[in-house]
């Protein structure tokens, strides 16, 4: 159905024809035109009145400020004349020192961020899906807190937790890892159900000049659906890294709604 060399498909022509086949009654068109003109006239009067009101109030406000300013200044002058002084003469202020000038291994941080992006957006991750399904099936049988506590000690749950940790924990600080699992969340794309392929590419990461711990990035994800159609999706995001090059915080912005597209392809 692609348009090539300026030619249109039959559907394109039908859509253009639909536009021509919509006949808007001339009477109603004319009536709407009059209504709009009449409303614009009313708006114009309102605008004139409002502008006048604004001008008058600004004038009044300026006058009040002027009077207040004169009273304030004259009081200060009177005080100075009466010989009141304060201070020890030591008026130099120290400039606040910038906090942090800890050295940050920028290259290591960028490599870590890139690795996480490549991991999350290369999928599907069949191993994750396998351990996740097993863990969720086991969780379905749990009804009390005690049972859930017991479940966490079982091999099926341990496998699930260990796999996630093996994949991501080394790239993050402890808090950062918890955040990534729960808030971002990890495996949202690579662990998605269905028949698809994801590949991340064109990853560009830059360090923030004002805050050396902050990084901004953009990248592209090529999504291949079950029909073999490949389409690119743009992402951007930001991350905060510790001085050891571990991620403290990471956020993605799915600019082109890849997740919606993936959902639509399976439902």
């Amino acid at each position: 159905m692609k348009k090539t060399d300026g030619t249109h498909t039959a559907l394109d022509n039908q859509l253009k024809q639909l536009d021509q086949d919509i006949i808007w009654s001339q009477n109603h068109k004319a009536r709407l035109h009059s209504r709009i003109l009449s409303k614009l006239d009313k708006q114009e009067s309102k605008t004139r009145f409002f502008n006048g009101f604004k001008f008058t109030s600004s004038l009044v406000l300026c006058s009040l400020l002027l009077v207040a300013g004169i009273i304030f200044l004259s009081q200060n002058i009177l005080q100075e004349d009466s010989g009141l002084t304060t201070g020890t003469g030591n008026t130099t202020e120290e400039e606040p020192t910038l906090s942090g000038s800890e050295e940050v291994d920028a290259e290591k941080s960028k490599e870590t961020i890139q690795a996480v992006i490549e991991e999350e957006f290369n999928g599907p991750d069949e191993k994750y899906k396998e351990v996740w399904e097993a863990a969720m099936e086991a969780q379905n049988n749990v009804t009390t807190q005690e049972e859930f506590d017991a479940l966490q000690q079982t091999p099926v749950w341990q496998n699930y937790m260990n796999y996630m940790a093996e994949t991501y924990a080394a790239s993050f600080t402890e808090n950062g890892y918890d955040n990534f699992l729960n808030a971002t969340p990890a495996f949202m794309y690579s662990g998605f159900d269905g028949d698809y392929d994801l590949t991340a590419s064109d990853i560009k990461i830059s360090q923030n000049e004002n805050n050396l711990k902050m990084y901004q990035f953009t990248f592209q994800v090529d999504y291949k659906n079950a029909n073999g159609e490949i389409q690119p999706y743009l992402f951007e995001g930001e991350a905060m890294a510790s001085e050891e090059g571990k991620i403290e915080k990471l956020q993605f912005l799915d600019k082109d709604d890849l997740l919606t597209a993936m959902n639509e392809d399976i439902y």
Binding site: Q14, Q17, L18, I22, W24
Partner: peptide, 17 residues
């Protein structure tokens, strides 16, 4: 109906859209 009329040729496309 009334204010706007759609010619018969395009009603199905209008419905589908």
């Amino acid at each position: 109906e009334g204010i706007v009329e759609i010619r018969e040729n395009s009603t199905e496309l209008y419905q589908a859209l």
